[in-house]
Design a protein around this nucleic acid. Structure first.
Lengths: 142, 142
DNA sequence: TTGGGTGCAAATTGTTTGCAATTGT
DNA sequence: ACAATTGCAAACAATTTGCACCCAA
């Protein structure tokens, strides 16, 4: 049973971001910190909350996720397929690999790639503000 | 005046893809091969055509771009900001850098990064089907 | 108490689709 | 001639927003 972070979701996390501690926000923060699937769409968050008995509007889910993103509490990704997916922000940056057969999302870090990126940007007279790297993969047949 | 490719857009390109040579298709193919801006949204293609005096429906632009993508004639990218952008397909794969101040799109290739990607995927038991790398950058101040 | 937060429904935005008319081949 | 293609408007999907009510501080 994976646990997202070392410490559970705290109301502190919200206060620190200047957000009132409300039921919807706590439930969403909590959900993101404890689900099996770490990467969820707004729709999925909404459904999950319904299943848990909470009655939170989809619009609120979107609003809260946006606020969380601005506050740096969650990261939003645009994988192929229309919907954005959200995940709890982690320590260091990491990239993603999405299995095209199962939809599974695998995280990975590659300092080497990050460094090459910096270097390439610099060669063009730029510095990196943000970046997005997604590998769409298939299981190796054997 | 940059020219996209060595040879101009040909009706052959369409026939080869099993597509009838129609006016809308030729105009769009032509446009993509000659605009200053190589990366355009469907909207931009539409407006550009209007400015050129052509009267082609937006729906047709979308349909044609989709067909071109399936045919491998264009590549579609999902940069930040909702709309998809399309560009004429090139020889080898390349990645993009988007300037957050000007919106300018710069292409680059990095065999080193590609290789690292392959390696990382393999380490996880996968092979890469496709990938997307976008650097969101800012001009270096000096 | 009171300004931020929420639910609901309506509005937006980007893109796709049904269908009748039109056009390549 | 006939199937493929287009234009138009309506349909869609994801996300945002206006507003009256509600609640955390």
């Amino acid at each position: 049973m994976p646990q997202r972070s070392d410490r559970p979701a705290e109301s502190q996390d919200l206060r620190k971001a200047g957000l009132k501690v409300t039921h919807p926000r706590m439930r969403i923060l909590d959900l993101l910190g404890t689900t099996e699937k770490k990467h969820l769409t707004a729709e999925e968050v909404y459904r999950e909350l319904l299943d848990q008995g909470d009655d939170i509007a989809l619009a609120t889910v979107y609003r809260v996720l946006n606020q969380f993103e601005s506050a740096g509490i969650v990261c939003r990704h645009h994988f192929e397929g229309g919907q954005s997916v959200y995940e709890l922000a982690q320590e260091g940056h990491h990239d993603h690999m999405v299995c095209m057969e199962t939809g599974k999302v695998i995280e990975f870090e590659s300092p080497e790639i990050e460094q090459l990126q910096e270097q390439i940007a610099a060669e063009h007279g730029y510095e990196i503000a943000d970046h997005s790297l997604v590998l769409y993969v298939r299981p190796l047949k054997r």
